[in-house]
Amino acid sequence: MSDWEPKIVSFLCTWCSYGAADLAGVSRMEYPANIRVVRIPCTGRMSPKFALAALREGADGVWVSG
């Protein structure tokens, strides 16, 4: 278990969190590379079905931010 790395899928609102993730890059912050981002037009677009689909595809965590 020690080298187990979680796979995290994040659904980010294009207007805020996605922009913030861009800004983290611009500011050269570092974070683990376990995240895959799906850009959505608003967290209003987020459907529980997406979260379930991601978990089903093997994601260990789903992060919705917006």
Partner: peptide, 30 residues
């Protein structure tokens, strides 16, 4: 914004450019 799309229980609304199958395709590609 897609608020109506995800609120629609029947799946009758599609958001062009961020449609269900398009977002699912990204998720399935994961």
């Amino acid at each position: 914004c897609g608020l109506c799309v995800s609120s629609c229980r029947s799946g009758a609304i599609h958001l062009q450019g961020f449609d269900n199958d398009q977002i699912f395709s990204q998720i399935f590609a994961l």
